[in-house]
Simulated scan of single mutants.
Amino acid sequence: MPFIIGYGIAILGAITAYQLTKGKTNKRKFIGWGITLMFAISPFLSFAIGLTTAVIVMNGWAAMIMWVIFPPIFLLGFVLLLVGIFKKEEKVKF
Rank of each mutant, 00 (worst) to 15 (best):
K91W: 02
P72Y: 04
V92C: 01
F39N: 02
A17I: 06
I15Q: 00
A17N: 06
L37K: 01
L76T: 14
K87L: 13
E89L: 08
G34E: 02
G8T: 14
I31V: 11
E89Y: 07
L82Q: 10
F70K: 04
G23K: 03
F3A: 12
G8D: 04
A62S: 11
V57Y: 14
I65A: 13
V68P: 01
M38G: 05
N26F: 05
I41N: 02
L12V: 11
I9F: 04
T52N: 12
M66W: 05
T52E: 14
M1F: 03
F78L: 15
L45Y: 12
K88M: 06
I4R: 09
A63E: 12
A14Y: 06
T53H: 08
K87A: 14
P72G: 03
G60F: 08
L20H: 05
L12P: 01
K29N: 04
K91R: 14
G60K: 07
G23C: 06
F94M: 10
K93P: 00
E90H: 13
L45S: 11
I15D: 00
A62E: 09
F94G: 11
A17Y: 02
I49L: 15
A40W: 09
I35T: 07
I11Q: 03
E89H: 10
A14M: 14
T36A: 15
W67G: 15
F47L: 14
I85V: 13
I69T: 03
K93N: 13
I5V: 15
K24R: 13
V57H: 10
T25P: 07
P2Q: 09
M66V: 00
I41A: 04
T25L: 12
I35S: 05
F39V: 09
G50L: 11
G13C: 11
N59G: 06
E90N: 13
A54L: 08
T36E: 07
P2Y: 12
A54R: 08
A48Y: 04
I65K: 08
I73Q: 11
P43E: 07
K22C: 01
A40S: 10
A10S: 15
V57K: 11
A63N: 14
A54P: 07
G6E: 09
W61T: 13
I35M: 12
G77A: 05
A10Y: 03
K87I: 12
A14L: 14
K29A: 10
L75F: 14
F3D: 11
A40N: 01
A10P: 05
T36G: 10
A40H: 00
F44S: 11
I73E: 06
T36D: 06
E90S: 14
L81H: 09
G6Q: 08
L45K: 09
M1P: 03
S46C: 01
G34M: 03
W61V: 13
L82F: 10
G13Y: 08
T21E: 07
P43M: 05
G60V: 08
I5W: 06
F39S: 07
I4M: 10
G32P: 08
T52K: 13
F86N: 09
